[in-house]
């Protein structure tokens, strides 16, 4: 293949890659990956303090189980213990 043709293919590929990056950054199609893994909620149970307050009011046993296995999670101490959910 001639150098000129290779250059055109590479230039088009580069523009397509740059365009894809622009699309991703404007439309955020990977935003579903932005849920906290840890620290802001109870693992996969809930994602924030408000979310966990709602979730735990209906799923006390699951929250208790989570907190027994993850005693270092700050929400276990602040949220659950303060409102009497957590086993003493």
């Amino acid at each position: 293949m001639e150098d000129g043709n290779i250059l055109i293919i590479l230039a088009i590929s580069a523009f397509l890659l740059l365009g894809f990056s622009l699309f991703v950054n404007i439309n955020n199609p990977f935003s579903f990956l932005a849920n906290p893994l840890a620290g802001n909620g109870f693992g996969t149970l809930c994602n924030s303090e408000d979310d966990c307050r709602d979730f735990c009011s209906n799923n006390l046993g699951r929250c208790n189980d989570y907190c027994r296995e993850n005693p270092s999670n700050e929400l276990c101490n602040s949220l659950l213990r303060s409102i009497g959910y957590l086993d003493k």
């Binding site: 950054n25 990977f30 990956l33 932005a34 906290p36 893994l37």
Partner: peptide, 19 residues
């Protein structure tokens, strides 16, 4: 290139931050 695709959230540690 992917560093520009998978930007960090800086809002706790998420799957996106991991990537």
């Amino acid at each position: 290139y992917l560093t520009g695709i998978f930007n960090g959230t800086l809002q706790g540690f998420t799957n996106l931050d991991l990537l």
